[in-house]
Design a protein around this nucleic acid. Structure first.
Lengths: 196, 196
DNA sequence: GTCTATATCCAGATAGAC
DNA sequence: GTCTATCTGGATATAGAC
């Protein structure tokens, strides 16, 4: 990893923990293992680092939700649906990079229109679009009853997004939260399934 | 309103817009109409103002969700349920004080355990508890099918919480968001109602 | 309880040697 | 590309007059 990339990584770590205004270039430099002035050979300034992080967040978004490849194969039973969904959630919840981007965005969402926009895409549009496709596919297979797939995707994912945000700020509640999530997904499946 | 209260109000306004670290005591003083040093006759320092705001947020929480008086009378038809729920949402969304507390909390939730805790209460526990009671009441009246009322409350309120947060950062989307919310509530009612 | 003046500190950023 | 030394501005906070 180049120094330039290392700076980005450490800056994101600090921004996600203490916010942009709560982080000094000195702190970033220290974590990188250089002195603050050296940092200016890689980036024009603090705001330049911020913008690079935002660009990286957009790239990450594209990787996660830009193509349909990440949907994987459609679940064909209740067990598969639970396992596949819980797997995706557990990954999103624990992947260090995604977690940092999520915490960074939630704190900085009011800083600019661009950040507000990206936050909405990460928190609502991306996940919703992915699950709209999955639910639509399962409706076509007769696994779910016919209904508005976008509405169902929202109802499935919204509680999960809020619980993940809770786990980010209260990590000691993670066990409880995971239980709530699984219970919710099971309930969702039962409500919208033909098979009783 | 005393100067002390005015300081609190203006500080919350600025904190909700630019965050705690993004706000200077000078800016607060200017909005109050005094010079920064005068402010120190009312509060020990910036952090003291922050703590007073957190206290105020706790009081506000108690007013909103502490008693069951705010539930109002139980809706007895689909129309009444939609109207009552949309009314509560519109109020929460537009009340200036609640909006500021919400934006403040979402930005400062990682600053301390206490703030994390209050954020969860505001964003999840309070609303969920209120709607658990309402849904439970409507189940007992036979208006909703028997199911886990807490789970249903989460499924009803979680998308709304996320959409309100979106409206906070993207006010130009409010119309669309309100439509989504109403559609979601109608759908929720239809799914969990006996009457077809 | 408000002001002006000021102390103190720390932030982001630059200059220039190596 | 890294460093030390330094500039400059802005921040929190205090002293003391009115």
């Amino acid at each position: 990893m180049t120094t330039k990339e290392k700076i980005l990584e450490e800056a994101l770590t600090l921004f996600s923990k203490n916010g942009y205004d709560g982080t000094s270039v000195d702190q970033i430099a220290e974590r990188v293992g250089i002195k603050a002035p050296s940092l200016y050979k890689h980036y024009k300034g603090k705001e330049d680092i911020l913008n690079a992080i935002i660009d990286a967040a957009e790239v990450r978004y594209e990787e996660l939700f830009g193509s349909d490849r990440n949907i994987g194969k459609l679940p064909e039973s209740k067990d598969e649906f639970i396992r596949s969904t819980m797997g995706k959630i557990s990954f999103t919840m624990h992947d260090p990079m995604i977690r940092k981007i999520r915490k960074f965005l939630i704190q900085e969402q009011f800083r600019s229109e661009r950040l507000a926009d990206i936050t909405t895409r990460h928190q609502l549009d991306g996940i919703q679009r992915m699950y709209t496709k999955i639910i639509e596919g399962m409706m076509n297979k007769g696994l779910f009853i016919k209904d508005d797939p976008k509405l169902l995707a929202t109802e499935l994912t919204a509680p999960v997004v809020l619980w993940i945000a809770q786990a980010d700020r209260q990590p000691h509640c993670e066990k409880e939260i995971m239980d709530s999530i699984e219970k919710h997904i099971r309930h969702f499946y039962d409500v919208y399934t033909n098979i009783q």
